[in-house]
Simulated scan of single mutants.
Amino acid sequence: MDYTVRVHTAIDDVDERWDDLMTAARAPVFYRRPFLRAFEKHPLHPVLRTAYLLVEDGSGRAHAALPAYLQRDVDPMRVIAEHYPHAAGRTALLSHAWHCYDTVLPVRPGPGSRSAAGRAVTALRDLASAWDAGLCGIVNADAASPLDAQLTEAGFSGVDIDVGWGLTLDQYTGFDDYLTRALSRKARHNLRHDLREADRAGVGVRTADVGDADLDGFVRLARATAAKFGNADYYRPRLFQDFVRELGDCVHAVELRVEDRMIASALTLTDDTRLHYWAVGYAQKDTPGYSPFYVSYAHVMREAWASGRDWVELGRRNPSFKRRYGLQPRVLRAYFAEG
């Protein structure tokens, strides 16, 4: 099949064919219009230029797509610094944004899917050349996905950069079944202990939509949590709140409070098949007898089963905790080609 690639510079310049393709491809929330529009209006990291590559057949039907961002000196996870240090200071055209830990190449299922995916990859390299990018790539992709072979064949070098974690929800009847069958006796005891102690301490829990969530409180807690890893500006004040508000109905906050004091806040994102435990901030002290991080985790996992989704996604980092709590790992890989 012959394909044409069109390059758009704003998501709202692309009509409903984008949304139809993302639904057909079961693409994660990071590829849906609300997230892309929010990132355009309130970029969570600096972007020089934005592109949406749409692969179409002769009738105009979309078969594959990629968002891509031209950037310079943006490396919050230190992927380029550690694996391509000689590219520091050069421009890079990358897909997806760094705040996406679930990078895919959305392709319409069918006999022409591999060809359409290949056309999108070629178009990404062509655009990098046209924009004089020193580095071109796809980051945070599942190393076990078909994308690995496609990118390797296209001349991209893959490097393992992190591990993503998640859980298939329908293998358990609910949160209590998960505690019983997935966790060791010690891990199960510790989590139930923290939930009991939080209840005794009068911790209240609520799930709030974006219009009612305390986003200022979330950013305060999240920055303090991230500061332990030298990455507080992953949550830039005002910018992050504005971005989250733009997401609309696909984002919720699970908030924990003692009286009027918020001690933890977790942001969840949803798409057709997944609930994403996207971000969390929590108090570092003054919660004797229980961990607000563990209590927050338990309530988000309850939300995951209540959502009716197939999978809960818990992103990157904190491997000791995630392994202990029965989550499933997958290697995340970055694929780079130099200009």
Rank of each mutant, 00 (worst) to 15 (best):
Y101P: 13
L94I: 13
D102L: 08
T122A: 15
C100N: 15
P106G: 06
L151P: 02
V159P: 04
S113M: 14
D148V: 01
T103L: 08
L124M: 09
G118M: 01
P146H: 05
S115Y: 10
T122W: 14
G134R: 11
L135P: 07
V104W: 01
W98V: 10
A144C: 09
S115F: 11
A130T: 15
V139C: 06
S95F: 10
A92Y: 03
T122E: 15
F156R: 05
A120E: 04
P109I: 00
L93K: 04
S95G: 07
A87F: 05
R108F: 09
S145P: 05
A128W: 05
T91R: 12
H99K: 05
R114P: 00
L147N: 01
A87Y: 00
T152Y: 00
R90M: 01
R90Y: 04
V139M: 09
A87N: 06
A97C: 13
V159D: 10
A143H: 05
A128V: 00
D162L: 06
E153S: 02
T122Q: 15
G110A: 03
D126K: 14
W131R: 05
S129G: 15
P111Q: 06
A123G: 15
A87V: 05
V163D: 10
D160N: 07
A143T: 02
Q150P: 05
P111K: 10
A144F: 08
Q150F: 07
D142R: 10
A141C: 04
D162P: 00
H96L: 12
L127R: 03
G134A: 09
R90G: 01
G112K: 03
T122L: 14
A87E: 11
G155M: 00
L94H: 01
I161K: 02
G118I: 06
G112A: 13
V139I: 15
R90I: 02
G155F: 04
G158M: 00
A120L: 05
R125W: 12
L127P: 01
